[in-house]
């Protein structure tokens, strides 16, 4: 196996881990029927708070906890505004997107380019010796990368293999039915929005404590929150597809930057920056129902069924709606 390719893939796995974590967090939240639109702001704020806490305490663990708390807190505002104050989730989420980013910039001001603690790099014994998989997935990653692996399986297992997972999905699909089975719909929405928010915060910490260490203005992770949101849709609210989406996205990004390096391709440098966004629209187009159906009609009938099953991306039926018991 080509060593350069392994290097590139290994870097890819590292650098896409925050996207994986944030998109999983949002998947959990949306599965419970709540949209946390604030990702682009809350990741940034969590990164700032996490870094400041890590610098202040000298401990990356405290930084991580602070970042998770921050993400959860932003999510809490959304869920309180939704359930208790009956305000539109999208509106509150959007305001928080801007507010959290500004707040991050303000509190981060005196920490710009300050050196702080960083997460260590760890290799996993035994696993790192597996050919191909070892060097790519189990060598020299920060611990949060491994956390992201565990999270993917844990989220899937929790959602699709446990009893509480049934309740989680039911709350997002049909809250009336969940209520009929004794599930406290709004309490679960609180819990999972907070859990999802905490993961979004964790993604922020992964940036500021390892992937893009430190704090800068403008924040280096700006824009990734929107991409994470798009990945959730592309991933059809399923953990495996979500992680696939995140890796795919990071991979295409890497390819687009490689294009610039190729001497044969004459594309103005700045236009390469358009690619992630074109990619985002493209992926959403692919999973949007209208486009799929048009695409499918071109296929033979037998192929239509399974292609639809793979590409279909139905949101939780009660996503963004409010539930009142009576």
């Amino acid at each position: 196996m080509n060593e350069e390719l392994l290097n590139i893939l290994q870097t890819l796995v590292t650098s896409s881990s925050p996207l994986v974590i944030a998109a999983l967090g949002e998947t959990i939240t949306e599965r419970a029927g709540v949209v946390n639109l604030s990702l682009d702001g809350s990741i940034t704020l969590a990164a700032a708070v996490g870094f400041i806490a890590a610098v202040g305490s000298g401990s990356t663990l405290i930084g991580i906890l602070a970042a998770m708390l921050t993400g959860a807190l932003v999510a809490l505002i959304i869920v309180v505004a939704d359930i208790e104050l009956k305000q539109d989730q999208v509106a509150i989420g959007f305001v928080l997107t801007l507010l959290a980013a500004s707040l991050a910039q303000f509190i981060g001001q005196s920490y710009t380019r300050v050196r702080g603690p960083e997460l260590p790099f760890v290799s996993l014994t035994f696993l790192k010796d597996i050919p191909f998989l070892g060097p790519v997935f189990f060598t020299d990653h920060n611990p949060l990368v491994y956390v992201s692996f565990i999270l993917v399986f844990a989220t899937w297992w929790w959602m699709f293999r446990t009893r509480p997972g049934l309740a989680l999905r039911a709350v997002g699909e049909r809250p009336e039915s969940a209520f009929a089975r004794g599930t406290n719909v709004n309490r679960l929405r609180y819990i999972y929005t907070l859990v999802g928010g905490a993961l979004v915060g964790l993604a922020g910490a992964a940036y500021s404590l390892s992937i893009k260490p430190g704090w800068t203005n403008p924040p280096a992770m700006r824009g990734d929150g929107w991409i994470a949101l798009a990945i959730v849709i592309f991933g059809g609210w399923h953990p495996f597809r979500v992680v696939l989406g995140a890796y795919l996205f990071a991979g295409l990004r890497a390819i687009s930057s490689a294009i610039q390096r190729s001497p044969d391709v004459q594309i103005p440098l700045v236009l390469i920056n358009a690619l992630p966004w074109l990619l985002m629209i493209g992926t959403l187009l692919l999973v949007s129902s209208g486009a799929i159906e048009r695409l499918l009609r071109a296929l033979p009938r037998s192929a239509q069924v399974w292609t639809r099953n793979i590409l279909r991306s139905d949101p939780p039926a009660a996503l963004g709606t409010r539930f009142e018991e009576h």
Partner: peptide
Amino acid sequence: RLGVNEIFGGVA
């Protein structure tokens, strides 16, 4: 026409 939510379309 294409079913891409305007928030994401707008951001992009």
